[in-house]
Amino acid sequence: MANQEIIDKLKNALVNQDINGTVEATKEALAAGMTANDIINNALAPGMKIIGDKFEVAEIYLPQIMMSAKAMNNAMEVLRPAMEKEKIGEGSGIAITFVQEGDIHDIGHRLVSTMLGANGFKIIDLGVDVSNETIIEEVKKNKGKKVLLAGSALMTTSMMSQKDTIVALKEEGLRDSVKVMFGGAPVTKQWITEIGADGTAENAAEAARVALDLTRK
């Protein structure tokens, strides 16, 4: 099979939520002599972009995105040894996702976690109503790796504690080891600048784009 055909096959398997198909096609791509770098850039990343676009126009929903994320992770597993050889980092990085303490609303959080996972982030989902202590602990555990913090808050009170998260990161000397993005209905760009976070997004698809931008820097 020509390389382009294998690339298309992998991309389609990803877009069509074929969790075994991505494994098979990734193996074929490696066997055909492609590098992990090429496979990611030519098949997986464009595939995930399609997923994001389809989600934005309400063509697919959470179940499909979650399955595509799984298909993506399966492909990454196959690529891992090649990535080590090529000295490519852990995909997009680690994303620690959470809903701030005092808040139990989780629709946005769920979508963002899934979209980040679908874009190659390894997700550590801390869930809802998460304290700053728990967040700091998790950041410490992953110190030295490429880490993104993605927190959401639906209520104004829980939004306030986003500021405390930044303060706590600074106090622990961890601010420079993570990129921090916050989202949620009450969160504005002005608020993000004011508290010294790195980014925000209006919706889950945009969150994935912002996250990729932030971690590439």
Binding site: A58, I60, Y61, L62, P63, Q64, I107, R110, L111
Partner: peptide, 13 residues
Amino acid sequence: DPTASAQLIGAQF
């Protein structure tokens, strides 16, 4: 039924 949102799962599901 907060998670039974067509916004999350789509009309089909």
